[in-house]
Design a protein around this nucleic acid. Structure first.
Lengths: 143, 143
DNA sequence: TTGCTTGCAAAGCATTTGCAGATGA
DNA sequence: TCATCTGCAAATGCTTTGCAAGCAA
């Protein structure tokens, strides 16, 4: 399944850059892949500690950045000042609905948004690389 | 012009909440209204100090928050961890193109985006309040 | 051996807050 | 008068960095 090839892609990147395979990176990668959706460095760190893994929080931050650099993870920032990461390996681009009350996240994707991106960018002589869209409101539980 | 009524709206709000009119708030409001587009608390603070105004940075932060509360300003956050504010008084909602190289910002608005917001939200039983869209890429100068 | 890694503690940064003195209404 | 304001310094909270010891290759 995907977890295996994501792991391979990571170590390929690691090897190519002359970096090393370590138990900490292994543990963090495993935990990250197990995670359902978005997670912050702190959440990952706490989860690892709870499982008895001995990793430092700096290593979690560093490894998450490494994952983003090799294209396995994407940084997402909502309006709360916390950087979260989500899987990117074989995942399609998507945007988010953010509940203002309970903080829950729903992913969505819309081809129309991609079209708008191209169109708006063209109108302004802009070369689009990526976009980000968030809709803030109330989820169906909180309404 | 708009500056006068924005000022009136601000002091109306200030009076209604039992707050006071002070030289610092006056100076910060004036500088903010003079600002072309987005500005951070630090930029505003520096500009005021350069002009010889004696205001503390906490007051700038506090006043900017006040402006946002009374609907004159809107907080915007891009991916650099700095909170910026932009005029909201008699300005239409818009989204942003952000240049990854020089950091320049272009505003745009698209009725299609508003339509997507409504549609996507409806599909997920979500009640939309506001949205945020940013397209990151290269501006025509930096391409 | 060699230089990448790690964990800790300290540093960084933007922002917020506590507080005593100042001040607008 | 008196509650709101202000500026300062200290505190926050997330994240990064310096460094000496540890470890993969």
């Amino acid at each position: 399944m995907a977890a295996r090839s994501a792991r391979e892609a990571f170590y390929k990147h690691v090897a190519m850059r002359g970096l090393r395979r370590t138990p900490q990176r292994e543990a963090i990668l495993t935990e990250f892949l197990r995670w359902e959706r978005h997670c912050s460095a702190e959440e990952l760190y706490d989860a690892l500690r709870r499982k008895g893994q001995r990793v430092g929080s700096s290593t979690v931050y560093r490894t998450l950045r490494l994952l983003a650099e090799c294209g396995l993870a994407r940084e997402v920032e909502f309006d709360d000042g916390i950087t979260r990461f989500e899987h990117l390996y074989q995942h399609d681009h998507h945007d988010h609905l953010v509940c203002l009350k309970c903080g829950s996240l729903i992913e969505f994707s819309s081809p129309t948004i991609e079209r708008i991106q191209a169109q708006v960018a063209a109108e302004h002589g802009f070369e689009p690389k990526r976009h980000k869209m968030e809709i803030y409101g109330l989820c169906h539980h909180c309404r």
